[in-house]
Design a protein around this nucleic acid. Sequence first.
DNA 1: GTGACTAATAGTCATTACGACTATAAAGGG
DNA 2: CCCTTTATAGTCGTAATGACTATTAGTCAC
Lengths: 238, 238
Amino acid sequence: MEYDKYAHEPFAVTVDLAVLTISAGALHVLLVERGQEPYAGHWALPGGFVHPDESAETAARRELAEETGLSDVSGLHLEQLRTYSEPDRDPRMRVVSVAFAALLPDPPEPYGGSDAADARWVPYEKAGPLAFDHDRIIADAHERVGAKLEYTCLATAFCPPEFTLGELQQVYETVWGIALDRPNFRRKVLATPGFVEQVPGAARLTGGRGKPAALYRAGPATALQPPLLRAPREGRPA
Amino acid sequence: MEYDKYAHEPFAVTVDLAVLTISAGALHVLLVERGQEPYAGHWALPGGFVHPDESAETAARRELAEETGLSDVSGLHLEQLRTYSEPDRDPRMRVVSVAFAALLPDPPEPYGGSDAADARWVPYEKAGPLAFDHDRIIADAHERVGAKLEYTCLATAFCPPEFTLGELQQVYETVWGIALDRPNFRRKVLATPGFVEQVPGAARLTGGRGKPAALYRAGPATALQPPLLRAPREGRPA
DNA sequence: GTGACTAATAGTCATTACGACTATAAAGGG
DNA sequence: CCCTTTATAGTCGTAATGACTATTAGTCAC
């Protein structure tokens, strides 16, 4: 990096958050309604400026706490997506934005946002035209999460601390938009060392009808070997 | 993003490039020697400031052309890695750096750098302590590239337009640091639709000894399904 | 209660994929 | 000319996978 050949053009640096969760069998994303120009009245991703003493990761986790209203966001999955830096992405000034994807198990209340006019969980499919380049950001987030489900244990990040294999399967089916065979899914997950571990007590839970399911916790593994594939089977609707 | 609650702290935005190539059976990374403080005399990744009218991608490709001396970098694989934004990563000022990985087939001459004191291809393993957080960046680049070899067709980005399956296999072996079984590798690659396509003419090429090999080109596929796995086999040295 | 309905879990089976090999072909070097 | 080297063809037993069927254990409607 050569510092002294160019003037240091001033950039504003922000973070944008694609906060994803699964609710009622559909992928949802957290959106806020913009109160001011540009894009006043449009929906956008939550986010904000990186403070002078913060890294982008720190800023993202701070914003995540502020925007979700959750008191403890330390256990949530938060990962950097990529940085969006087109010169004209903000009409007013040069803004470089580091985008993050965050995964929540149970969506908290839409909360009366601190600094946003309104905030809401919106089904991913209906997250209409958003402000700035945020449509692209949520598309990238969806693609990244879908891909990582195949070869990592990321799916458990959408689940509460204890979950059934049915719930875990629904994560895959919802994000990928296809149906999976239940016995085969079970066999595969249980055959992957460290993916999930059964909660030892006779702990069971019923979501309502049907045979009660055993509860599992996320295991120590982080990668799936071999991966869980989505291609071979064409989707009957999930 | 709320613009008016915080002062817009000025950030400098740079790009850093992890330019990787395979040479003499080893992964190499392009390094430049810093001419000035901080870290004067240390080796670092090539990079530079993002200009006011550029995106980070544009800046990265411009720097790639400048630093490699290649006249046409449009066909090269260049992908954003992640953004490094720790407040203290540069001792002088607040610098946010967008890191990229670039993959080259044949390394051009080390060239007499334009603005760098010196530039050199260094074996990845010997790329000693680098300036700033650049050790971490090349480690992240190596990890990302290694992972993407498994489930994408990225390996061809290390190869010239026409290559033998032996050369392609060496990409995997070099990046992963393990040996692969040649007949099985061949079977797998040829069974993946769109990964490679044979150059139709009786085109053949000999690197020296042995039976001449058929030449292949990169095919239209971008993803490998199913992936090529590296785990099951423990590496005899590649 | 009793019988439909639902969901979880166990198990079967044929096909395919994969890792580990062996064998043959086509070049060059001493 | 034989030996080495590399490419390519093919074999074989095991493991993994997709597509199923069957059984178990609950809720709900009546």
